[in-house]
């Protein structure tokens, strides 16, 4: 079938199976880094929205006035980077969330979140590499 062809190509990673698995902190309408689930949960219009670390390219923080801005870039086609066998880069109909930018007055917390995301990403890449080494 039309979906099976593209879907079997990428690996299945999944943040949560049930909505009661969200960390309780999501109720603060703030960014939550859930290390156990290798996931960042982002507040979008009152909804907790999970993004698995495998979809994240990087995160960077800049300060401007009273605010810290955190930009999270996701892996998407046309950037010349990223492991494409995890994602449906070849599917001509797929849309991608490419980046999300948040602002906060809590500059220190935004620093911490950027660091947490970077570490989570590093660990995920390391684990992938270890898996690959085992397969070789």
């Amino acid at each position: 079938d039309e979906n099976g062809v593209t879907q079997k190509k990428f690996k299945k990673f999944e943040s949560y199976k049930r909505d009661n698995q969200f960390p309780s902190k999501v109720k603060d309408l703030a960014i939550v880094v859930d290390e156990k689930a290798s996931t960042i949960v982002l507040p979008i219009m009152g909804r907790p929205v999970p993004f698995h670390i495998q979809t994240v390219k990087n995160a960077s923080k800049t300060d401007e006035g009273d605010f810290a801005y955190l930009r999270i870039n996701f892996l998407s086609p046309g950037q010349g980077v990223g492991r494409k066998d995890d994602q449906p880069f070849e599917d001509p109909t797929a849309h991608f969330v490419r980046s999300l930018t948040f602002r906060s007055r809590d500059v220190e917390r935004m620093d911490l979140i950027a660091e947490q995301i970077t570490n989570l990403r590093k660990n995920a890449v390391r684990r992938e590499q270890e898996k690959k080494d085992l397969e070789d």
């Binding site: 309408l29 980046s99 930018t101 948040f102």
Partner: peptide, 22 residues
């Protein structure tokens, strides 16, 4: 004003939309 509801406020979102040629 909804984006301003939380501590962390969504400012911008970017999408990759595949080409119209296809």
């Amino acid at each position: 004003r909804k984006s301003g509801a939380g501590k962390d406020q969504l400012v911008e979102m970017r999408f990759y939309i595949p080409g119209t040629a296809t």
